[in-house]
Amino acid sequence: MNNELTDFELWQNFLKGDRLALNEIYNRNLSPLYHYGMRMLQDEEVVRDCLHNLFVKLWINQKNLKPTNNIKYYLISALRNTIINYKNAEKRFQKVELNEAETFDLKFSVESEYIKKEEQQEKMLKLSEAMNKLTARQKEVIYLKYYEEMDYDQIAEIMDLTKKGTYKLSARALEALREVLNVDKAILLALLMAWKR
């Protein structure tokens, strides 16, 4: 029944205090939230805690929430804040030095599905290695853009960047990618040919 509701209607029901609507919101959005959380934290227990807090707080603060027609975007944004708060709290507790870099777990790999020959695979490994050297924020932008299909406005909002900054981060990431790719046009071509579907 609830499946037919749009994000906006579902959210309105939730705002009216409908617990089933909250459960529906959970069921529809848990998967992307979980992925995003795991990339930010790499620890399922902590991700679980953060998700738990996120949904409980969502219910408690019902009255202060605004209408939305993109629940996933809203929740990812909220989860990001929850995680950042968690990290800050942990830093305070454990007195971890700030030099511990922020991580966003997005590992690029070259599945053998695309590449048949050993030597090519080797080169592709180099390529993905280079990709993996992107900063956490660059990876996060790429993740939000290509995995969660958000536009630059939303990404900027979530990551607390200007839209221009988001473009830059993304462009720099793509630039890095292209640089690596341009190294060997032959491989690139081979890859392109090998790509099926």
Partner: peptide, 8 residues
């Protein structure tokens, strides 16, 4: 191709 790798 780039997208393929990005989404890998």
């Amino acid at each position: 191709l780039q997208l393929q790798i990005l989404l890998s």
